[in-house]
Amino acid sequence: MHTIPREKLPAFLEYLSKGGELIVPAKKDGLSFFKSYEKGDRLYLEKGNTDYSAKQFFFPYKEVLYHYDKEGNFENAQEPRERILFGIRPCDLHALAVTDMFFSDEPADPHYLERRKRTTLIAIDCTTPGKNCFCDSLGKRDPIGHDLLLIPEKKFFYASAGSEKGKKLLEDSGLFEKTSESPSIKKIPCKKKASPVDSSRVKWEKWGKLCFACAACTSVCPTCTCFDIEDEIQLKGGKTERQRTWASCFTKDFTSVAGGHSFRSARPEMLKQFVNHKFPYFKEKFGVTMCVGCGRCVTACTAKIDISKMISGK
């Protein structure tokens, strides 16, 4: 175990930013999110989670997969770069673990995996959950898959490496000290609890009637990865961009085929697909639930639908 005093954090961030684009959690206009680090940024590190996850840095809202010319010659559009993601919480580490499994499943998705491979994860342990969190009910409270973990204490952070990359950061930055002590801080349990019941016992009609199908949940969800692939002709140069953008199972177009027929247009059915995908469907294939209990969809829901209650059969 190592430690770093809080006042040395800016120096550590400065050090990290030399290794690539540094992404940090910040708060602006009452909303917390991840952004590219600028000197003087006030970091949002404690008290619950960020309102927006770091999903967009691995699976952007809109990305250009390829450019191609009139003759149909494709060129890869991705420019891989090194990134350091600082301040990611354990639930979002679990979310990355889930999306890693999904995108690594054959045939693997090189666009996502390339970004993942080039990102160093510096996590911060979560001591105080937000009001809608229920990660501990789903067993997603303990950090996984990080390169370095910071555990907050009043005046300093404990630091432990989770990979060779993390070990190197501890040693090479010259800002950490070895310690034989171990963290004393207590993790406050989540207020919300969830105990998933069989899909047949979930009250789809009751919750589905409330749903506006606004798709806020799927856009804040750190594990929602459905997408569209669309071509857009560029006005200059005669090139076309093949773009990938986020899609939501709460839109009628999501399941509509040429000719206009939509296979899923009733809201209870959309909700059922969303929730069943997060729980039984994903678990059957990958052994874990896709939902990490981050509670963002509960916070974002315009109809006050609470997934922790819904999946518990309430």
Partner: peptide
């Protein structure tokens, strides 16, 4: 079955039905 299929490889999610 006919469904909307954007990717063809089980990733885009549009054609997912009944798991």
């Amino acid at each position: 079955l006919e469904r909307m299929m954007k990717c063809g490889v089980g990733k885009c999610g549009h054609c997912m039905a009944g798991g």
